[in-house]
């Protein structure tokens, strides 16, 4: 690990000033410290933002509001979250170990970096880590990589589970920066890699995530997260699906779906959603709708199986929404 200085800030303004001057903010640190040890990240000045008053978790009349510094474990264990936003709780519990969930913040979770082994391996070609050096995953071990939103420059999946749930539920995020405050959909935080995979998100220089807002309603109470992986717990997703249904008088009035493990960012599936509206929820309806999920997918040498795995994962996730009491 390269040497660095570390300072604590106690106001959002001080954090914004520090970030604007190029210093690196650290919250839970579970991604950043690991990557610093691998020398993938080499910040010279860290700013500890854990003392900022941004850990609140509350429900208002329309939204669940989660402060950017709230810990994954605390959000998942919050009774209002479990009652009104079970998908958020489930996606958090399925992401990372209990120890890491006690450490990692919601804001940091959204900004976590990819788990592509070549990104972590400083001797390998990686356009994200070292622009224009190439992509070792294209001709390498790529069973875990993306089939949607890829480019010839990067095929890494976004690793977050809760981000998939947030995108499905139309969450927005409030950020503060040197030019003031703005709010935008969480979905718009994530960039496609294109030919600039080193640019991962749309935050402007000096901007800090303050909170995430997730609208609640009949759909959010009937929402589930299904994560398919190599072992039953504590593993990254091969394929995952965050599904929500609003059913009234036996007919689907609203459907939300985002998938993980297959896209270079959390992937909303609006065509599948549209195909469900007005239908009676059952397996055949879900199967018909899920067929379009792999349209436009570009499999790599090692991940053709994701084309087969994605539709039934979506079907099962929608079926699970009906299993909520």
């Amino acid at each position: 690990m390269f040497p660095f200085t570390i300072e604590k800030v106690t106001s959002v303004e001080a954090a914004i000033a520090a970030a604007s001057s190029g210093r690196r903010l650290i919250a839970g640190g579970t991604t950043l410290i690991d990557l610093m040890r691998e020398e993938v990240e080499q910040p010279q000045q860290l700013v500890d933002i854990n003392a900022l008053p941004m850990s609140e978790i509350r429900i208002d009349r329309s939204d669940l509001v989660i402060g950017a510094l709230a810990r994954m474990a605390d959000v998942a264990a919050h009774p209002d979250v479990q009652r009104l936003q079970p998908l958020i709780a489930e996606s958090l519990i399925e992401g990372a170990s209990p120890q890491l969930r006690n450490m990692a913040s919601i804001g940091g979770n959204l900004l976590q970096r990819v788990r592509c082994p070549y990104f972590r391996m400083v001797d390998a070609a990686c356009n994200k880590r070292n622009p224009r050096s190439g992509c070792a995953a294209l001709g390498g071990l790529n069973a875990g990589h993306a089939i949607l939103g890829t480019s010839d420059h990067c095929v890494a999946t976004h690793p977050s589970d809760v981000a998939v749930a947030l995108v499905a539920l139309d969450a927005t995020m409030r950020v503060k920066g040197p030019k003031g405050e703005r709010t935008f959909p969480v979905e718009e935080l994530f960039r496609l890699p294109g030919d600039t995979p080193h640019l991962e998100h749309t935050l402007l220089p000096g901007e800090l995530i303050v909170e995430v807002r997730i609208p609640w309603g009949p759909h959010s109470r009937r929402a589930r997260y299904l994560k398919v992986r190599d072992r039953a717990s504590y593993e990254f997703a091969l394929v995952s699906a965050a599904a929500a249904l609003d059913v009234a008088e036996g007919v689907i009035r609203g459907a939300r779906l985002a998938v993980g493990g297959v896209g270079t960012r959390p992937w909303r599936m609006r065509a599948v959603e549209a195909a469900l509206i007005g239908k009676v929820p059952d397996r055949r309806v879900f199967q018909a709708a899920a067929r379009s999920a792999v349209e436009g997918a570009r499999p790599l040498s090692g991940n053709h199986y994701k084309l087969e795995l994605l539709p039934p994962t979506i079907v099962r996730a929608f079926e699970m929404t009906g299993e909520i009491a």
Partner: peptide, 27 residues
């Protein structure tokens, strides 16, 4: 593992279980 994957370094930090390899003492 020294990368947060194995749990061998688990301690209680202010009463909560954490992996001590992935956090800086300076914090």
């Amino acid at each position: 593992c020294n990368q947060g994957a194995c749990g061998a370094c688990t301690i209680l930090l202010n009463g909560r279980r954490v992996v001590s390899c992935l956090t800086l003492a300076a914090m």
